[in-house]
Amino acid sequence: MSDSQGPLWEVFVQKKSGQPFVHCGNLHAFDKEMALQNARDLYTRRMEGMALWVVLSEHIVASSPEDQGSFFEPANDKIFRHPTFYQVPDIIKHM
């Protein structure tokens, strides 16, 4: 069946200035401008955001679920990267 909907775009919303852009969903549109306008109408009808990103879904590179274990394994045994790994004398109040 032919596709009459245009490509898929992913939508990211920034709630307030200074905050990260968060993925909120996706939509179909035929070009950038239409994608942005559709995103506004679909995802920010209640002031959910002050800024939007739209990006073609096909341009997203994602890690694969099968490789999850081995892919993230290097971070698994490095507890020394966390502040709680280190002892600080009780007498030192702020650090």
Binding site: M1, D3, S4, Q5, G25, N26, L27, H28, L42, R45
Partner: peptide, 29 residues
């Protein structure tokens, strides 16, 4: 506003279904 919301809800759900490998055109048909 309510009817516009319903349209939006349809769109969220259609793309959720599309992520399972069925096209929007097929569903509409």
């Amino acid at each position: 506003a309510k009817v516009q919301d319903e349209g939006g809800h349809g769109l969220y759900l259609y793309t959720a279904a599309e992520s399972l490998g069925i096209s929007r055109d097929q569903m509409l048909s």
